[in-house]
Design a binder for these strands. Structure first.
Lengths: 198, 198
DNA sequence: CTTTGAAAATAACAACCGTTATGATAACGA
DNA sequence: TCGTTATCATAACGGTTGTTATTTTCAAAG
């Protein structure tokens, strides 16, 4: 008889909680992101949090998963229909921290990445998402194998590309004055092309 | 008349505290590194901690500073007497997480790096140390300018090298199975040489 | 040996943590 | 309208946190 559950609304509410978690982490750091600060950031009470999540770790895991999930999904959609190095370059450049929205994403990414060494759950999450990313990069390299040197190691090249991507993104996040938006584009494009020629 | 202070011993004690802090962070993550767990890890009481440091943040800042300080110092000593790309390559390879000691260092580095976006103190610390690192890399590139293409942008090349270094090191830390020790050497050396040729 | 102050341990503090329990509200079916 | 139940706010719980105060230990100077 009573009021029926609304799965649609529940999912949207969980996303709101995740967004509030991101803002709380960005403002206070991950160790300052308590249930109370998250709730305050989202404008709801701690009761709402524990109603949609079993405990705090579930909240963090969900919020962290959404970030990397978004990156992988967007890159896949940009690259999957017609894999190419230029499409990959464009997709990764779009993900770099060149505006406030992406900077927030990288801040969250960094906070969760730092949890990986001491949390098996976060480590596995990282491992899975980056396996997907590497596969996407490899797909783009395979598609242009004819344009590459014959002895190129595609797996290794993919690791170098993602290493440079994360490294430059990290430095750009922490020193936006030294790594301006145009700088990031130039740095990454130049490296991608010198790799492709190798 | 009483017992005189011993600055030497005080400095050594602070280093012990820093080492205990590293182990506590490696074991419990940075949010699990409380004054009590740090003290337990080092075998002393919280009283010792607050005797040598004003508060917890000072402990973390000191412990974090020592890690990056060590890296910069070692790279400088390896590269400064006779700057070259091969010396730089060797120095950076030595710092990669290819053994447990270096893996611990990278874990601490990651924990502190993740604090930078929400802590101005840690952000400044990062900025200063990486400015020094970039200067060292630039020095090595300058020393071999004749062997490089004439239109090469040394500042940009330094940023790419350090980006690749941190990115590969980070991934190797989190996925040691995918990035084995020999893999790291091959990945980094290959990239260094393709950059030099550019 | 006594005295003195550095070094360190212990104890106490309020504030905050994650979790759980409890109450209030409101939307829906009957 | 009434009863039921999803949703959410509030309050309380034991435990832990960083900090401060107090006490103990102990090496060396007098």
């Amino acid at each position: 008889m009573g009021r029926p559950p609304d799965p649609k609304r529940a999912e949207a509410r969980r996303a709101e909680v995740a967004a509030a978690t991101w803002r709380a982490i960005a403002r206070h750091g991950i160790e300052g992101a308590s249930l109370r600060t998250i709730a305050q950031e989202g404008g709801f009470s701690t009761g709402t949090l524990v109603y949609y999540f079993r405990n705090k770790q579930d909240i963090l895991l969900f919020a962290g998963r959404m970030v990397l999930d978004g990156v992988v999904t967007r890159v896949r959609q940009a690259v999957s229909p017609r894999p190419s190095l230029s499409a990959l370059e464009q997709a990764l450049l779009t993900e770099m921290p060149r505006n406030e929205k992406k900077r927030l994403g990288w801040t969250i990414w960094l906070a969760f990445t730092a949890q990986a060494p001491s949390s098996e759950l976060f480590r596995q999450e990282h491992e899975q998402r980056y396996a997907e990313l590497r596969a996407l990069v490899c797909m783009c390299l395979e598609a242009e194998r004819t344009r590459l040197a014959s002895d190129v190691d595609i797996g290794a090249e993919a690791k170098r590309i993602l290493g440079l991507f994360d490294g430059l993104g990290l430095h750009a996040l922490l020193e936006p004055g030294v790594y301006t938006g145009p700088d990031q584009v130039e740095l990454f494009q130049h490296a991608m092309r010198s790799l492709a020629r190798a």
